[in-house]
């Protein structure tokens, strides 16, 4: 009962934090925090995000072929919309233009896990991975142009990451937290600079500061209804550097995932 109450509080808190950031240049996917303890264990999970500006889905899996060794797979697909400042229209005001975007990322990782603590209730893991993705943003023409044209920018990107994480599993309840060191390398792209000077400058900044390095922090809280786990996850970019702030990188990503622990399924039937 207690766990359910905590769960609801956490849900509402996260929805508050998820507001108002831009997903145009990068959005962190949900950090996949492994809960593996034995060889043969595995999880598949599907995640969803919906909001007034975002709808996204994710597929994530972990599997341990041998004890202490894990494999990971993530796929991420997010559609988002918002307004981008495109031109400075006066000393104080920016012209804004609506945009719709989509970003996708597919990645794989390998790593190790280790149980620690008096009852071995803590699980430490370290994964490293690589993935490739693509982002597309479609901007409406700035208002002063009275045009129905759409200006498109799209590019491919790669991400490498190293991810240490810590998790804790109870009977009905699981929590996890992790840090992800991410290197994001923007590859080739086609950019319509018609979208406006400010946005073009941002995209140039993105290109010129590539590969971007930053840190992400995540936590996840799950409610275990064996073999199913419902979890709420939050992953946030730590926006320390000026570039990250200038780019207005999405700082926080929240998702709800429904997971299935395959080994528990086997036990059940």
């Amino acid at each position: 009962m207690i766990s359910r109450a905590y769960f609801l509080v956490a849900v509402s808190l996260m929805l508050v934090f998820a507001a108002c950031t831009s997903n145009r240049f990068y959005t962190p996917n949900t950090m996949n925090i492994p809960m593996l303890t034995e060889a043969g264990q595995g999880t598949v999970a599907g995640g969803l995000t919906t909001g007034s500006k975002n709808t996204g889905w994710e597929a994530q899996a972990t599997y341990s072929p041998v004890k202490h060794l894990g494999l990971m797979f993530n796929h991420f697909d997010l559609r988002h919309k918002g307004e981008a400042p495109t031109n400075q229209s006066s000393f104080f005001f920016f012209e804004k233009t609506p945009y719709e975007g989509q970003t996708r990322l597919t990645e794989g990782a390998v790593g190790g896990y280790y149980q620690v603590g008096p009852q071995k209730e803590y699980l430490l893991s370290l994964f490293t991975g690589f993935g490739q993705g693509r982002s597309e943003n479609r901007y409406s023409a700035p208002p002063d142009q009275q045009s129905s044209e759409i200006y498109v920018s799209d590019w491919r990107y790669q991400r490498y990451f190293i991810q240490p994480a810590l998790s804790l599993k109870y009977n009905r309840f699981q929590v996890g937290t992790g840090i992800r060191f991410a290197w994001v390398n923007y590859l080739d792209g086609n950019i319509s600079s018609r979208v406006g000077q400010l946005e073009t400058q941002r995209i140039e900044l993105l290109e010129n500061s590539s590969p971007l390095f930053f840190t992400e922090m995540a936590w996840s809280i799950g409610w275990r209804l064996k073999p199913v786990v419902i979890s709420l996850n939050s992953t946030a970019v730590v926006r320390g550097k000026n570039t990250l702030r200038d780019l207005d990188l999405a700082s926080n990503y929240v998702s709800l995932t429904l997971g299935l622990n395959i080994h528990e399924l086997k036990k059940k039937f």
Binding site: W155, N185, Y186, L187, D188, G189, N190, I191, S192, S193, R194, T200, I203, E204, E207, S210
Partner: peptide, 8 residues
């Protein structure tokens, strides 16, 4: 390295 093609 990243190589964006800008068109106007």
């Amino acid at each position: 390295k990243s190589d964006f093609n800008y068109y106007y």
